[in-house]
Design a protein around this nucleic acid. Structure first.
Lengths: 232, 232
DNA sequence: ACCTGAACACCGTTCAAGT
DNA sequence: ACCTGAACACCGTTCAAGT
């Protein structure tokens, strides 16, 4: 085997943080997060693993940098329409963006690092929110809420449904069917709702689920911004 | 060293899935998720690592079981007050419950396995939602939304703020202060909102953030259930 | 300043072999 | 049926040593 070295033909590009992140992006996309090791990133650069530690404190820091790189090429929606339309577009784009990159949500979710790319997005979002009339504190809270919602949702969405699927021993629809059957065969006296809603619960139309949650949040933000007539 | 064996004085309790899960819970609470290895769980049971594979397909399956065990002792809120109060209480309890167990959100979030304990909670939630007048499909979507929100939120909340904190080289307030300073020193012409909102963005009053998002969601569900007067 | 070799202390998982 | 020993193919990280 011995594929460790001589893999990258030209290793003239100097080893920098950006080079590490580029290699990490490549490994992530090609091999997935579980296979993303320091050794493999190093091999991608034609270098030994310990060399990376000169440019990066540890793997966690590399993952922080990777997370920021994953949102670097996100494209904000056009600045037209009301704040609702803009936030909706923002979230749908963000979801699509994460879904387009392998294991992206697993890297991004639960990682609070204010990298340069994220700062640009955050600034843009806050600006739109302020312009829409959101007070400062509420704008910050809203931005956090939306980012959290999208990342958390896609995390679920990108995760294997079960250990069986993760290991490739069952396809996604097999798992879904098994789940529905399982729910339907529960004792109807103890779990009437699960039995009745077996299909809705097990068949994950993620598009619908995402839109549902997002519209609830947008509605909630609307009543915050424009309280219902007669409330004040 | 050799602490592998003879650690558990009585290994008479037969090796079962429940025993594995119990040991895994113990290791998780004591050593954290990063230290939760098959070998360590086995050691906890006075047994060799390969033995576990007789009772469990692989580590993923053990984590699935662990995730369900983590919500097994969740206590649903009292069944009094309107649906809003009940859902609010549900989510706050769920958050507190996850926060109370080390790395719990990291195990639970992004893992969709319908274990027995989760089924009980789901049934109870659906029942309350149906009783409150939610149509079947909306009840299922709402339950998913809330579960996703809480798990995703706590995942962020329980995660280290940066690689520095993870490695114990900086305290949480040090990281927060550094983040605030970083935001404040950004060029004010390009990042006016980040500079202005530096404090709000970097000082994470997680209690507030959680409540804010939750109230928005509840408001959104309210307008779904009881459309604003004059809308129809 | 930057990279390598060798090593340490681990991993998850398989599989023949034991009982 | 259930557990062990030994092994395979890996990990992240440190550190002296090289250039």
């Amino acid at each position: 085997m011995r594929t460790d070295r001589a893999k990258a033909p030209g290793q003239q590009p100097p080893l920098t943080q950006e080079a590490l992140v580029g290699a990490a992006l490549l490994v992530l996309e090609r091999d997935g997060l579980d296979a993303l090791s320091m050794r493999r990133v190093a091999a991608e650069l034609g270098v030994q693993a310990p060399s990376l530690y000169w440019h990066v404190r540890n793997k966690e820091q590399l993952l922080d940098l990777l997370a920021d790189a994953l949102v670097a090429d996100a494209v904000p929606p056009p600045r037209e329409g009301g704040w609702r339309e803009q936030l909706r577009a923002y979230c749908h784009l963000h979801r699509r963006h994460l879904l387009g990159k392998r294991d992206a949500a697993r890297v991004v979710a639960g990682r609070f690092n204010l990298g340069p790319s994220l700062l640009v997005i955050l600034e843009d979002q806050l600006d739109r929110l302020r312009e829409a009339g959101f007070p400062a504190a509420e704008a910050a809270l809203t931005s956090y809420l939306l980012g959290n919602y999208v990342a958390g949702f896609v995390l679920q969405e990108q995760s294997p449904l079960s250990a069986a699927e993760a290991v490739g021993q069952a396809t996604r629809t097999e798992v879904v069917n098994a789940a529905r059957d399982h729910l339907q065969q529960l004792p109807a006296d103890r779990f009437p709702n699960l039995v009745a809603l077996a299909a809705e619960l097990s068949e994950p139309d993620m598009e619908d689920r995402f839109a549902f949650g997002l519209e609830r949040i947008l509605d909630g933000l609307a009543t915050l911004l424009e309280p219902a007539p007669g409330t004040r």
